[in-house]
Design a protein around this nucleic acid. Structure first.
Lengths: 155, 155
DNA sequence: TCTGAAAGTTTATGAAT
DNA sequence: ATTCATAAACTTTCAGA
C-alpha cells in the first residue's frame, strides 16, 4: 500500500484537508462555494473531491436526523461479557436487531460494547433478554451527552 | 409542543420518510433525483426538505471520512466511575480533548462512557492519565466493529 | 401542497495555458 | 494541475390548480 500512501499524501495537503473539513460540516455545499472557501476553481474542487472519494477517504455523505423525531428518545450501552464460542451468535444477533446502532468487539473485561436506540426505557428489557443467554450483560442508560462529534474525525 | 408535533406528523408521511431515507444514505443527491425517487417535482422536494431542516428533523449533512486516512486507527472506550463533584471537570476535560469523539453521562456502575480515536494504542495512556485523577477508569480497546450504522437512525 | 415553466446558478466536459 | 468556455443539469421563483 506504499503507492497508495503517496497518492493519499498528495491529496491531503492543506487544501485537501480544508475540503474534507468543509464537507464534513456541510456535505451539501456546492463545489463552487467550496472552491471559494479553499481558493480553487470549481472544476479543480470537483476533481479533488472525486479523487478523495475514489481513494476511499470520503466514505459517504449522510444527513444527520434527529432520533427524537423518529421516536427513538432513549440511548443506551449494553456490554456483554462472554467467551469465544458465543462470538458468532452475538455478532449475527447484533446485526439483525435494528435497535443496535453499533457493536464493537473489545479488549478488556467485557467482550462486546453495543450502542442501542429505543423509544422508551422499557424497550431495553426485551433487547437485553436477547443477549442474556449468551453471556453476562451490563446496561448503561445515557442520561446526557455532553460531547458528541458524531462520526466526525478530527482533521 | 403539540402544535409542532402536528406539523411533524405531516412531514413524516410516507414521502417524508422516504426523503429522509434517501438523504441519510446520500446527502449529496440532487433535489431533482430525490423527486424522481419519491415521485415529486423538485420544487416540492425542495420545500419539504427546507421544512424538515427548519423543524430540526434534519440536523445537518456530513461527509463521512475514513479515520484510518487521518491517522486515527485506534478506537477505544474509556469508562469513568466517579462522583458528582467531579462531573463538571470531566465534562469540560472531555470537551477540550480532540481525541474524545463522544462523552455520555450514564446510569449504572460507570458515570461516564467516552469514545476516543487515537493514532496508536500508546496514545491512550496520556489520555487515560488525564482522567485518572477524577475517578476510576476502565479502558476497552476496539478490536473490530461488526456493526456500525454511524449516526444513522432506523426509519 | 403540488405542478409546470422560466430565469438564474451550478456542474461537467474538454481545450488551452 | 489549473483556468476558461460551453453545454447540460440543477435550483429557485412564481403563477396557477
Amino acid at each position: 500500500m506504499e503507492a497508495m500512501d503517496l497518492r493519499v499524501e498528495k491529496m491531503l495537503d492543506g487544501i485537501g484537508l480544508k475540503i474534507l473539513a468543509v464537507l464534513q460540516e456541510n456535505a451539501r455545499m456546492s463545489l463552487a462555494s467550496i472552491g471559494q472557501a479553499v481558493g480553487l476553481s470549481s472544476p479543480a474542487v470537483a476533481e479533488r473531491v472525486k479523487k478523495l472519494e475514489e481513494a476511499g477517504i470520503i466514505k459517504g455523505y449522510h444527513a444527520r436526523i434527529d432520533p427524537e423525531a423518529m421516536g427513538r428518545s432513549v440511548s443506551a450501552f449494553i456490554q456483554l461479557t462472554t467467551d469465544a464460542r458465543h462470538y458468532p451468535a452475538v455478532k449475527s444477533l447484533a446485526a439483525d436487531l435494528p435497535e443496535i446502532t453499533a457493536c464493537h468487539h473489545v479488549s478488556g473485561e467485557a467482550s462486546f460494547i453495543m450502542q442501542v436506540r429505543v423509544a422508551q426505557v422499557a424497550d431495553l428489557e426485551p433487547l437485553v433478554a436477547r443477549f442474556s443467554p449468551l453471556g453476562q450483560t451490563r446496561t448503561a442508560i445515557v442520561l446526557s451527552t455532553p460531547v458528541d462529534k458524531g462520526a466526525r474525525v478530527p482533521l
